[in-house]
Design a protein around this nucleic acid. Sequence first.
RNA 1: CGGGACGUAGCUCAGUUGGCUAGAGCGCACGGUUCGGGACCGUGAGGCCGGAGGUUCAAGUCCUCUCGUCCCGACCA
Length: 475
Amino acid sequence: MQKITDPAKDFPQWYLDVIDAAGLADHAPVKGCIVFKPYGYALWEAVQRDLDARIKSLGVQNAYFPLLIPESILQREKDHIKGFAPECAVVTHGGGKELAEKLYVRPTSESIIYTMFAKWVQSHRDLPLKLNQWANVVRWEMRTRPFLRTLEFLWQEGHTCHATKEDADRMVTDALQMYVDCDRELLAIPVLTGRKPEHEKFAGALYTLSTEALAKDGKAIQAGTSHNLGQGFSEAYDVSYLDTEGKAQRPWMTSWGLSTRIIGTLIVTHGDAKGLRLPPRIAPIQVVIIPIYKSGPEQEQVLAACRKLKDSFTGIRVHLDDRDEKSPGFKFNEWEVKGVPLRIELGPKDLAKNQAMLARRDTGAKEALPLEALTPAHLQTLLEEIQSSMLAQAQQHMDLHTHHVSTYADLKKHIEGEGGLVWAPWDGELATAQKVQEETKASIRLLGEEPPEAGAMDAVSGKPAKYMAVYAKAY
RNA sequence: CGGGACGUAGCUCAGUUGGCUAGAGCGCACGGUUCGGGACCGUGAGGCCGGAGGUUCAAGUCCUCUCGUCCCGACCA
């Protein structure tokens, strides 16, 4: 197995090494696409299980819409098509013949879903209509990297239709909170939330809310986003309903999504020089048991003890690595690369003392424990402790790399130094944001909920500030 | 799509001014000895040198085109 590049020396190479060494994904024979290997797909399945339950608890039902969207349908919302057309894959032939109308491979599904909403929504009694789909989408990105940006990616996209702006606003914030909860509780990823500036919002949206995580290299990553689409899509797709007074009304739409990019976010949030580190709640294997023995009678004794231990761990995702051809040292390293939170080592010396060694992946701490103390309850407690410890570590990293500045010099200093999230007053002008982006590569990730202090000036332009903005280099 | 680096065994790479039968380490298969932090010995399998075209008596090596990967930009989840 290959050695992993030191993340301090070459973070991008470290990222690729971890994906390879941990067996998460492989390059596909298609430009910009990856194959999810079973261990990597298991992570996505865990996200799906967790998020699907949360989505349903918001009263949203799952449905599925076609992959291919007729050009005429995609074109109906002007801003939307303008934003997405340049990065779409287009099907021009089918059945050996050129198609009369081109079919777009969905880059997102607003257009086709709202075309159906137009049929399904007639009365105020049909609202709210709340659907979600788990799907793949294609966006022809110029630059790709595994999980973080691929031509085809997997995600869920929620689409809802409401009678009032207030209802839609509530849906948008509920969806965003759902992502915050999933990020924090399942993935132990702390996130910052806020509104995107006008020039960064979703094509065709009224406004966009997003969650931003912070990678270990100081770059920001969007980890879940939620849009209030206003009435523009209702207009474009001719969705209307009759209110209680029999008057035709335009409903309000929302859409929100979280993609397989979250797996990349997981890697760059928690990974270390030894490889992947997985928070217990998402880990496909939470505890790995490694037997240690010389060939001979002790082999079967040790293995029997390991099996007994494994069988006693009900409710825990446990794996017994009983491969005879690999040495214990090899196994220690392999499971550390794969990020398994807890390791139990059991050998003849332990057996003689009726104990086992217990090692934590998050801290590296190792301790001897009597076998009778290795109960499922004890392990569960420990796994929960690791879960919260990993969230705390990530939160600490984010806090340490969050700065508030009032001068452009300080903004530059932080961005060009260790990176991170930099709060600065912003005058709301696109030109100011562009100047910063050109000179520092940092963009405005989101705007704070609170307005700037009275009299605060933009750190760059010197004009009166309208917002508190978070600048960062981003993935 | 612009700039840079690179495509030789599953992986990482070596291969001299173009020259004879293309190499190493790791991994893989088999046998044996091992097993408390990536074990060791032996044997073996595995290559139209990314692809196409060209120059040449002769191309992994030189030229052109093309496809792909990685990095840095612009675009974006």
